[in-house]
Amino acid sequence: MTHQSPLERLLRGLALVLVVCFFIFPILWIVLMSFQTNETILRSPPSVVFRPTVSNYAAIISGHLDSNVASMGIEFMRNLMNSVILSAGSVALSLVLGVPAAYAFARHKFRGSEDIAFTLLSFRFAPPLLVLLPLTLYFQQIGLADTYLGLIWVYQLICLPLILWIVRGYFEDISPDIEHAYRIAGHSWFSTFCRISLPLAGPGIAAAALLAFIFAWNNFVFALVLASADKQPVTVGALAFVTASGIQYGQIAAAVVLSILPVLALALYAQRYLVEGLSLGAVKG
């Protein structure tokens, strides 16, 4: 660490505060909104002084949306559950498929291996809507439309390339001789993979899984087209707040806060893995 004058420290601190305010502001505003009624939110000019209310949260958790005109039921908690099922399911499937594949791409150079790896990455290039139209027709024919399985399958377009490429970089960072040293002591290829390679790539796998989870959680368009009401995740479910009697900003804000909480908790928990995984794995991969 180089020496810093007090002034430098002060300026640096000030700059950091400004950056944090800039990035945190939308989230902060939403949190504030979630404790207000529609009237206080919409008053002009806006003010940060208000009497907090938890009625928005109560409405969302109980499932009864009371506006000044009518009362309607929403299934936001069910949406939240769907999000958990879809994101966790697709990340789990991606790990099962992607981690061994990443290992194969990292360790075994075979004919066309680079092409296959790149093809898998190219899933990320295609505009989702272009893929979705034909996919919807196929899914309806083979009965996968509006099922968790079908959605998790489509979510592989998001998760699999991400996990594959990050984890591959991580496996490439491990010296093959560490595996060789274990193999030569009388162990099979598979036990070497499980006992040596997987634990060493652990942080990278955790980081990739977390990122994939966030991307899956935030996905909107796949679920919008392919899922009916009872399979919809929070991203699509939030549309229900745009009602005939107006937009329920307070409840939307509360819903947004509820839907970022699980990911935020996960991200905070795994933050160090995330940074380490991205800087070590993805850069070299």
Binding site: S175, D177, I178, H180, A181, Y182, R183, I184, A185, G186, H187, S188, W189, I196, P199, L200
Partner: peptide, 20 residues
């Protein structure tokens, strides 16, 4: 034969110790 069944021991140039 796979390496594990050859009954051979080896010291690697790059040491290859298991970090944990």
């Amino acid at each position: 034969l796979p390496p594990g069944r050859r009954g051979v021991a080896m010291a690697f140039e790059g040491y290859s110790l298991y970090p944990p």
